[in-house]
């Protein structure tokens, strides 16, 4: 089952404590019908990273965690996605409208999440931004907090409409300066531990850091359901947690810095299938 079985055995013989590291060689098929592209050639912009194959975080999880994402009846995210179907039709705000007042069906958003974040009216826009701006402008409703249950449930519902489609965020044109900013952040060694995203997710993916099996830190499955926290986790919340773990001062969820980082990290997943909503440990 494990791709690196031979290497792992060799490592075990040499070093009795080594784990069987590396990604596995399993195939992710959801509901026995949608086969996901979970290992694909890295996009051209990653040619200087030393990574030639980009991989879904799914490959670094245990068989038990993996299986939860293979069947929507077992995927705990789906409870929240169901709630989002209700939010979609719930009137909120001064205009007496719901999402459904303007959008016939959530299915019309197929493909949208695969291209987010993107430039809209000169602003780098994430799905959370898009939802809050429609709430404000069309509905006259209060903004939702970035990582609130409602927000992430709806981000997940809209993301689900693109499940199986390849991630394809634009990094050129007026997005280019934001992409550059995000790239610089990715290689910045934050905090007292002086660790960058790249130190863990580019140089050490496949290795264990204590009990954690490091992945490439991809966001094609976000929002993801985290078993440890028993809820949907936003992209920015994950970034915050990773910078906090460097003994660093994080950025705020919804900050311009995290928008730029989100664009850059998303672009490192261009070509992977959208897996939203994924399941993680």
């Amino acid at each position: 089952m494990k791709f690196k079985a031979l290497t792992a055995v060799a490592a075990l013989l040499a070093a009795p404590l080594a784990y069987a590291g590396g990604p596995d060689d399993d195939t992710l098929v959801v509901n026995e019908e949608v086969e996901m592209a979970t290992k694909v050639a890295a996009p051209a912009h990653m040619s200087d990273t030393g990574i030639d194959t980009i991989m879904s975080g799914w490959h670094f999880r245990t068989d038990e965690t993996q299986s939860l994402q293979m069947d929507d009846f077992e995927n705990p995210s789906m409870i929240f996605v169901d709630q989002a179907v209700d939010y979609f039709e719930t009137v909120d705000g001064t205009e007496g409208k719901s999402c459904a007042s303007c959008h016939e069906s959530v299915e019309e958003f197929a493909g949208l999440s695969a291209t987010m974040p993107k430039m809209i009216d000169g602003k780098l826009t994430t799905m959370e931004d898009l939802l809050n701006s429609h709430r404000a402008e069309a509905m006259g409703a209060e903004p939702w907090k970035w990582s609130s249950a409602e927000m992430q449930a709806l981000v997940a519902l809209i993301g689900l409409q693109s499940r199986g489609m390849p991630m394809n965020v634009a990094i050129d044109g007026d997005a280019a300066p934001y992409w550059e900013q995000g790239k610089e952040m990715y290689y910045t060694r934050y905090g007292q531990l002086e660790l960058s995203c790249a130190n863990c997710h580019e140089e050490n993916y496949g290795n264990f850091i204590r009990a954690d099996h490091l992945s490439q830190g991809q966001i094609n499955g976000f929002p993801t359901y985290r078993l440890k926290q028993a809820k949907l986790i936003s992209r920015h919340n994950r970034f915050r947690g990773c910078i906090r773990d460097t003994r660093g001062e994080t950025f705020a969820e919804g900050s311009d810095e995290f928008r730029a980082l989100e664009l850059y990290v998303a672009s490192r997943g261009n070509g992977l299938s959208v897996e939203t909503p994924a399941v993680r440990q």
């Binding site: 905090g191 002086e194 910078i243 906090r244 773990d245 660093g248 001062e249 994080t250």
Partner: peptide
């Protein structure tokens, strides 16, 4: 350090 934090608080 770049953005040193107060331990693992994120602050």
């Amino acid at each position: 350090f770049t953005r040193p934090g107060d331990g693992y608080t994120g602050k």
